[in-house]
Design a protein around this nucleic acid. Sequence first.
DNA 1: CTGTTAGCGCTTTCAA
DNA 2: TTGAAAGCGCTAACAG
Lengths: 339, 339
Amino acid sequence: MNPSRHHGGRQCGTSYDVAREAGVSQSTVSRVFRPGTSVAPATRARVMAAAARVGYRPNAIAASLITRRSNLVAVVISNLTNLHYPEVLAELTRRLSAEGLRVLLFTLSTESEIDAVLDQIWRYRVDGAIVAARLSAKQQAAFVHEGVPLVLYNRPGHDGIASSVCCEAASGEQLLIDGLLCAGRRRFGLIAGPADSAVGEARIAAARARLEAAGLLPVAEERGDFSHASGLAATRAIIAAHRLDAIVAANDVMALGALDVLRHEAGLAVPADVAVVGFDGVAPAAWPAYRLTTVRQPVEAMTDAAVRLLLTRIAEPGRPAEQLLFAGALVPGATAPLG
Amino acid sequence: MNPSRHHGGRQCGTSYDVAREAGVSQSTVSRVFRPGTSVAPATRARVMAAAARVGYRPNAIAASLITRRSNLVAVVISNLTNLHYPEVLAELTRRLSAEGLRVLLFTLSTESEIDAVLDQIWRYRVDGAIVAARLSAKQQAAFVHEGVPLVLYNRPGHDGIASSVCCEAASGEQLLIDGLLCAGRRRFGLIAGPADSAVGEARIAAARARLEAAGLLPVAEERGDFSHASGLAATRAIIAAHRLDAIVAANDVMALGALDVLRHEAGLAVPADVAVVGFDGVAPAAWPAYRLTTVRQPVEAMTDAAVRLLLTRIAEPGRPAEQLLFAGALVPGATAPLG
DNA sequence: CTGTTAGCGCTTTCAA
DNA sequence: TTGAAAGCGCTAACAG
């Protein structure tokens, strides 16, 4: 009833323009561009031709308004600089678009930005969210309150409110630590992640637990922030004060930093003098210069699960949250002999 | 006039619900939640209180429909696995959100997906797009036709249709090649990127040009796909057939692959036997295990420019496209003595 | 400063 | 199979 007035300049046509051009009603045009609707072949052809002439593109925004499905999924990632997350993001994006969902990306420079991000998430009426960032219990509860299905990635879900996909730390660290012990290592240095990282703490706790099970205590402990620079700093601090024969880092990037300090600053041989292990399985860890012994997160399986979990919760909002745990795979490298 | 019927479950309230609750008109509610509008302090307070009670969130989708501004920017990146692009993406996202714009992310597994991506871009009525992927002249023209401002990232704009920001290859390669020549290197091996990568070709062409200016031809040339594995393969192929004293790679990641083969497979000393240089300035290139001599792209300046270019074209759609060129900065490493 | 009135472009009953 | 009519939740003149 109201053909577009082209008031902005070269606007693209609306379904009314197409309808007029094709001599059908606007709702017929709408049907032609919607899957699973039945339109007479002849009508469909006329409409398609008219649409091409007018340069018509269905307006997803307008459709979202009425269907209450934006086909948008918010993906929140705290540190894209982590080298592991670009891979996760690429996989998530690939799988989501295969499901017809678009990615609204949010990255955090500082954790304090999270509330502003959540506000935007509510405003855009996303169909769901996959979050790889710290979320307080209150923030997780907000998703329930707003009716937005939430899947946490490598973060524990606060008592069943949110679904989550995690790479379990215990079995991986057990493989690493037990192997090192078996190979005769006794003096361990630990490089933890930031205190507010649940996965980081879980990994270090698991490592410590295995040591204690063997009647050992770590010789030294330092904290980093998952960055290479912090791996360098932590290792310098540790070897300045202690003599040890194994370093266990909470992630690969810090482990690579440790390797760099040991070999290029301290003149120590790896693994002859000191063994080093990490966690994640990032690409550079496998490069010949490092060949780090580590545990690789099953990114394919985890991202697949994250998307699948999200889809089912979008389809059935009432469904209870699920916590999925994946085991990492040992990647035997050259930086640690494992008994 | 039409309070929400809560038909889905826990829907969040609409501006009508708030209006009724606060005893004002719906448009007053709208004003309260829009910057730059004047509302009596008392009214504003009443509305805010009512909004909190109702759990009201402005609906960005509905606002977009009428303002014809979605505040969405499409960001298209072809290979997030490139190690340089996560950094670019993080910076772009940070700057865009600082400008009140949201990122709709598209990644390409294969270049053939691009048309499907463009279709989605049109449907979501994005305010603009920043693209780091190959776009044909026709595809670039489509942006003009659809009225979507386009900024190409590290891709040349097809005769003034699209704006672009690029890291210029010539001056960087000149620093590298002239330095190597000055240090007495004469037998060069080149590792190019994929043939359809404009930046890759520009870098290798620039390197070749400097060699020719010195009366030299490359001893060997191989093509990779910017990945570490392809750097390994190219280097193996080159050194199997030729004796050389310098390798010039089209990007850092392949250069790191070259280093790995030279040192860990061929038993050659770098830079004593063979010098290696790259391009980009990715993080691992600076790590002690590599200390690659390279040219760093000014990511901050480039992403800043990309966003600024996009903003001005959004503000003034008639404005002609601009091509911005940035010079890279030499990062003297330990893999190549530069005369 | 506030309310009234029209839509933005589409989907969705409901009839025909 | 198609069309008419009624909104989705909001912004944007225009009065008052």
